[in-house]
Amino acid sequence: MAKAPTADTSHHGEGDSRRDFLQLTATAFGAVGAGVVAWPFVDSMNPAKDTLALSSTEVDLTPIAVGQAITVMWRGKPVFIRHRTAAEISAAETVDLGQLIDKQTDEERVEKPEWLVLVGICTHLGCVPVGQKTGEARGDFGGWFCPCHGSHYDTSGRIRKGPAPKNLNVPPYAFLTDSRIKIG
């Protein structure tokens, strides 16, 4: 840095504040500019339009007998559809809310009590819980069991025991007819 000429001392204070102002505004504009330039690079890593446009999935429920469950794909994720038995429904409905980690009634989680539709991804770290097929472990509460870190879900897909913080997600879906749903 060159030394400032000494003759200018009378305007020293004024010059200083002007310089400070210029320096601050230049820095501020520089920072905003850098942010503006950085954003496209960061945002380019977010889901692209074709990924976002991934179609919704329609599922025919007629082949699923009571007590059976199927897994379908939606947005690259497994979705569990279980045709619940009367015993499973009453188990889910009669639970005392105080015992739940993520408090939700069964009613809030279903459109029709006999059909349970869930994103089949453990809310802990994203494994697919087992319990869809007959013979698979269903955990201590008759729903699903995540073998990765030992989370137990009940017959409403609610977390009951283990490290997962939340109930299994319910995806947005609607009944098109009595036996047909559209997920997404």
Binding site: M45, N46, P47, A48, T51, L54, G76, K77
Partner: peptide, 17 residues
């Protein structure tokens, strides 16, 4: 997480990056 994945699950965009 969505940003890291570039989608809604681990998929092609994730593998590529």
């Amino acid at each position: 997480v969505t940003w890291l994945w570039g989608g809604f699950s681990i998929d092609n965009p994730t593998l590529n990056r």
